[in-house]
Design a binder for these strands. Structure first.
Length: 1125
RNA sequence: GCCGCGGUGGUGAAAUUGGCAAACACGCAGGUCUCAAAAACCUGUGAGCCUCAUAAGCUCUUGUGGGUUCAACUCCCACCCGCGGCACCA
């Protein structure tokens, strides 16, 4: 017997596949007369093969590329890649020309930090990592299109990353601004909002804070009735403390419970600080609405869509203007955004953020020096605080009165204007109208600084009393009171009524707020693409920039930026654009852009210079500041004066936001070059190729990129689309599975997205600190990639992840060994029966003709024909049915990414196959013994008779096999033909089983498939194309890979057994099962007959005895339920 | 607090349209083979009860409590727990 040598097999096939370019799809549209069209190698040229799937429609199967930052890939990565590859292989077998590219996201902080850690220059480290990662990625046996790989640090790639930056700049979607930004003191760089995580930390409270909390507890427990002074509170506290015997307990309790959340760096978990720096931003907020609305139309995991909705955070509300009371100037007003204008009659104050622009005026006009000093002190204190400190203070409110009042025009009341750092400038308008009666946060502030509380809503509890406790603050539901024209209305109705009223009076304007902020691009780091911008002092002093150039006005004149220029794309973010000094839709000159010029497209890439001292310095200075004159000094593209390059590099997420666009256009006869666009300009992608392959059909990746990568990619795609860089209009909806284009008119880059789950190890999360990171290498070495793939996919649904345990993988190896044996184990019965000898000679006469009889008889003329134990000429009917069942279940499992069920189906099938074979063997043994003289005994043997009956009517899939007896697993009814048939599954069907296995265990499936094919070809049976040698397992020449074969089909009819099991219930409880003939169900009175049979059933009778059957439920072919009383 | 996903044997899990809960595995137990072990193969394996025992049978069981239905892991209502996202968001 041949041993299953996984190492040899896997190495061999990986080489063969590469040589045959099996996984290189036909990237370009086929050209007439072209001999060497990519991906056509495996098919004999000029001879179209109906078995060839290489002409299928394009299918772009994308997996998130890895960042090669650490020691290598672990089994978690392996899990994800395999999951994606299984899908790709399945789609290939479904007839698509599948493109499954791979690359490395090697630029960026991940890789740089790792390089710093191991003390290696990032450029050198990248080479090492690249080698290691590609080796690992090769070892897992995925069907990658290796010729199309890319690395983000390759100048040929980042040339185009920079190109994209330039395009966004020219479209007004990139801008530079001083802004408070998240600063990681450890990574010494700024972070996008998305890169700051909220982390809960345990914090032991200081005594002072404990007292604050205790005060609150006293209030909550009803200790105080009315708003009181701090002195009162203290007095109260003392007396209670003195009388309380449980004081100590309470203290520790408070200490234990205290938890805080801090913003930390996504990579190193260092608490983030806030700094003000001049930075480049991408105007993603301009796309907030489209990014939000399109979510409803794309086929993505709900989880990911929800995360994006949360992140975009659109809320409807109204901006209300409050006039400053003691100012005659009409432009002196405060704008407050609120979602709850219904409570406006309950407003008792206004609070503004310490960064609010109005404060400049307030300080200028403030009369009282003492108050001015107070304000300045407070501002100094709170502006010094980091966001982290502001947040850590939690619900503890502080504030200072400005001395100014605003007018609430709905009731002409004066609202004192306060400053507090709980109000954030970045949220809404940076000013809040305080309704302490119906907002818990406002209530806390009112209590802290002793402002009045007014009730305007009566909640469902009916409480109409004065609001003195936070538990009385009604936020959600109720009826309006003390609110003039709103009285008696439910709050929802009142919101609308008040909005209508305010808009009519022109005191307010309906609008939306968004949580989404513009995308911060600048990084003061080394390992990234230099931002391709040039700053010219000369131009700056004259107020010149690219936006004043001829090119800019040309673009403005015949703008392609349709969507950006159209009114309908404006939203409340227009407000923010205005604040920045320019609007993109009319390309008004932006003041902050003075002196800035993009590097000309033909001068790209701006190569990252080699800098010895690449480590981040902090203080907002980039390592490239040390790059030397050759890099830093450059001629101004505008005036020709000496100018300076930007030294920041761009965010890693920009590298990965467009890589899927690049993949198809790499390689082939184009090499790594771009292509001429419609206007003769070079583009990062070949328009024809892009039309053919994009958008991505299936994207699989981690849920951790729900907002970062996936949102940025969508934004970039939309922006480029709006700029007119993709033209799908004339193309190819036809390439999609159902001949439909995406519902969105190609506005989205990823038609389908699925998030894979995570792999844990023995119940614990894998992490370097725990030292339980599992690398695939050792398992591939020991068990092979096929076993590891199978094991990982069998753990559970792909979206769910699973727990990696060593015992489980050994079990999977056993399974594959079993399968191996079934395809290689020779039959122990070498003697031919008389019957077979006769047929043999007949076959020899027929020779190689295409007689259909050949299939049934099988030519045994070649002495090398391996006679296998488990594979023969015919498939027994019961196995045929099981095969159909398994195909159905496996197909279903594939479609829903529940690979575990697909594998289980194949397992069941092979179990059945072996079991059936064992039963046949029993018969054969009997025959061997009784050979010749006791034939009649054999013929009378029950199972032999049954099986021959079955064989006669069986023909191909969907054949009307019959077992002639109730099918129960233990009876030997499924025994195949006697000794003339050495096996119970036909060669065709054995091939079908391999096909089901092929996506999971691609190497073994290929090996066994080729063995099976060579066997067939030496037998001279049908299915041979071209000449095949018995050496074909050594070479793919002239062979067709199993991976381009059609996925098996199943026939509904073939699933039906002769006998059907009907469950008999009494009052919903199973009491018996009865077997009836399938045919019986088709008869007119089948119901009556089956019900009668059920009633007579021995096991059912006692349950019906003496009871009246009130109702009988009949689910045809499945179940009977007697309802008795 | 809001949004999303989930909760089924000792473990990973399965259950298609509301129709036999626990398929397929892992683990465990027993057996065959063996001087022995490993491997391989076979058998058993949700819990409880009845029974001398066997055969068979009965009851219970899908986070909790209700409901709809002849019938609920599946649908509805309320709640609990876990994971993930957002959050002094106005």
């Amino acid at each position: 017997m041949i041993v299953y040598d996984h190492k040899k097999i896997e190495r061999r096939w990986r080489e063969q596949w590469a040589r045959a370019r099996l996984y290189q799809p036909r990237i370009a549209t086929p050209r007439v007369g072209s001999a060497a069209v990519s991906g056509e190698i495996a098919t004999p040229r000029g001879k179209p093969s109906n078995n060839s799937l290489r002409r299928g429609k394009p299918y772009y199967n994308l997996m998130m590329f890895p960042y090669p930052s650490a020691e290598g890939l672990h089994v978690g990565n392996m899990y994800a890649f395999t999951g994606s590859d299984v899908w790709g292989r399945y789609m290939r077998m479904r007839g698509f020309d599948v493109f499954e590219p791979i690359g490395l996201d090697g630029f960026g902080i991940h890789s740089e930090n790792y390089a710093i850690k191991v003390g290696q220059h990032p450029a050198l480290q990248a080479k090492k990592s690249q080698e290691n990662f590609y080796r690992q990625l090769g070892a897992i046996g995925n069907g990658f299109a290796w010729e199309n790989r890319l690395e983000t640090y390759n100048p040929e790639y980042y040339r185009w990353t920079q190109w994209i930056f330039v395009q966004l700049f020219k479209a007004g979607l990139a801008y530079r601004q001083e802004a408070p930004v998240n600063w990681c003191p450890s990574c010494k760089t700024v972070l996008a909002d998305e890169q700051v995580l909220q982390k809960e930390v345990q914090k032991v409270q200081k005594v002072q804070e404990v007292q604050e909390v205790r005060k609150e507890i006293l209030r909550l427990s009803g200790g105080s009735r009315t708003t009181r002074s701090a002195q009162d509170d203290n007095a109260d506290l003392k007396s209670v403390s003195a009388s309380s015997s449980e004081e100590g307990k309470e203290d520790t309790n408070v200490q234990r419970m205290q938890k805080e959340t801090v913003g930390v760096c996504e990579r190193c978990e260092t608490p983030v600080e806030i700094r003000k720096l001049k930075q480049w931003f991408f105007r993603i907020t301009q796309y907030a609405d489209r990014l939000l609305e399109n979510l409803a139309k794309i086929d993505w995991d709900e989880k990911v869509k929800a995360a994006q909705r949360n992140w975009i955070g659109k809320k409807a509300g109204i901006v209300i203007k409050y006039q400053i009371a003691n100012s005659k100037n009409e432009s002196d007003y405060i704008e407050c955004f609120t979602t709850r204008p219904d409570t406006n009659f309950g407003a008792t104050f206004i609070v503004i953020a310490p960064e609010h622009p109005l404060l400049q005026k307030i300080l200028r006009y403030a009369q009282d020096d003492k108050q001015k000093k107070q304000i300045q002190d407070y501002l100094a204190k709170s502006l010094k605080k980091t966001a982290q400190e502001r947040q850590q203070e939690g619900t503890k409110k502080t504030g200072v009165f400005t001395g100014f009042y605003a007018v609430n025009q709905v009731n002409n009341e004066s609202l004192p204007i306060w400053i507090s750092d709980f109000v954030l400038m970045g949220v809404g308008t940076g000013a809040v109208v305080g309704v302490p009666g119906h907002d818990k946060r406002d209530f806390e502030f009112a209590q802290a600084v002793r402002l009045p509380v007014k009730r305007v809503v009566v909640g469902p509890d009916g409480d109409r009393s004065e609001i003195t406790k936070i538990s009385q603050v009604q936020e959600e539901a109720g009826t309006m009171v003390n609110s003039g024209f709103l009285d008696g209305m439910e709050i929802q109705k009142a919101i609308t009524a008040m909005m209508d009223y305010l808009e009519k009076k022109r005191w307010g304007e309906r609008t939306f707020t968004y949580h989404l902020r513009d995308w911060l691009i600048s990084r003061q780091r080394y390992w990234g693409p230099p931002i391709p911008m040039i700053y010219c002092k000369e131009c700056a002093s004259k107020g010149l920039s690219w936006f004043t150039s001829d090119e800019a006005s040309q673009i403005q004149a015949n703008s392609k930026h349709q969507a950006l220029n159209s009114k309908q794309n404006l939203n409340s973010n227009a407000q923010k654009s205005k604040d920045l000094g320019f609007r993109i839709w009319d390309l008004e000159f932006p003041a902050s852009m003075a002196g800035w010029w993009p590097v000309a497209e033909e001068d790209l890439p701006v190569k990252l210079p080699y800098v010895e001292d690449y480590q981040p310095r902090g203080e907002g200075k980039a390592p490239l500041e040390k790059a030397g004159k050759e890099f830093l000094e450059v001629k101004c593209p505008g005036c020709g004066a000496r100018a300076r390059r930007e030294t920041d590099v761009s965010d890693t997420f920009l590298d990965s936001a467009w890589y899927f666009l690049r993949y198809p256009s790499i390689g082939g006869d184009k090499g790594n070059k771009g292509d001429k666009g419609d206007e003769g300009k070079e583009l990062p992608w070949q328009p024809e190729v892009t039309r053919r392959w994009l958008p991505v059909d299936m994207y699989i990746g981690g849920a951790e990129h729900s907002v970062l990568h996936l949102l940025y990619s969508r934004f970039l795609w939309m922006a480029l689309y709006d700029m007119g860089y993709f033209d799908f209009s004339a193309s190819n909806g036809a390439r999609l599975p159902d001949g439909q284009g995406p519902a969105l008119g190609w506005e989205e880059p990823f038609t389908k997205f699925r998030a894979h789950g995570l792999i844990i190890k023995d119940g614990a999360k894998m992490s370097k600190s725990k030292g339980n990171v599992v690398t695939p290498d050792e398992y591939i070495e020991k068990f092979g990639a096929d076993t590891l793939r199978m094991y990982l996919m069998f753990l559970g649904p792909l979206r769910q992840g699973g727990d990696f345990r060593d015992t489980g993988i050994a079990g999977m190896y056993r399974f594959l060994e079993k399968v191996w044996r079934m395809y290689t184990e020779p039959s122990e019965y070498s003697e031919d029966s008389e019957d077979l000898k006769v047929r043999r000679s007949e076959d020899q006469k027929v020779g190689g003709s295409d007689s259909p009889n050949l299939r049934l008889s099988g030519s045994l003329s070649n002495p090398s024909f391996p006679r296998l134990k488990y594979i023969g000429i015919k498939t027994t009917p019961e196995l045929k049915r099981k095969l159909n069942w398994a195909v159905k279940r496996a197909t279903d499992g594939m479609e829903h990414l529940k690979y575990n069920t697909a594998i289980a189906a194949v397992m069941e099938l092979t179990n059945k196959w072996r079991q059936t074979r064992n039963e046949v063997q029993e018969v054969q043994k009997v025959q061997e013994v009784q050979k010749g003289n006791q034939i009649s005994d054999i013929i009378n043997h029950k199972s032999y008779r049954q099986s021959t009956e079955g064989m006669e009517s069986m023909e191909g899939i969907g054949g009307k096999g019959r077992t002639g007896s109730p099918s129960s697993a233990s009876s030997p009814s499924s025994a195949g033909r006697s000794s003339s048939d050495h096996g119970v599954l036909s060669y065709e069907d054995a091939g079908r089983v391999l096909k089901l296995l092929a996506p999971f265990a691609p190497h073994m499936a290929e090996e066994l498939w080729q063995r099976l094919q060579s066997t067939k070809s030496t037998r001279g049976t049908r299915g041979t194309r071209g000449t095949r040698s018995t050496k074909s397992t050594e070479s793919m020449e002239g062979m067709e890979s199993i991976h381009t074969q059609a996925w098996p089909r199943y026939e509904e009819d073939a699933l039906k057994s002769e006998m059907v099991t009907v469950v008999v219930q009494v009052n919903g409880r199973v009491r018996a099962t009865i077997e009836i003939k399938n045919e019986k169900l088709k008869m007119k009175n089948s119901r009556e007959e089956v019900v009668e049979e059920a009633k007579r059933n021995q096991k059912v009778v006692p349950w019906l005895e003496g009871k009246e059957i009130r109702k009988t439920i009949w689910v045809p072919g499945k179940l009977i339920n007697f309802v008795v009383g």
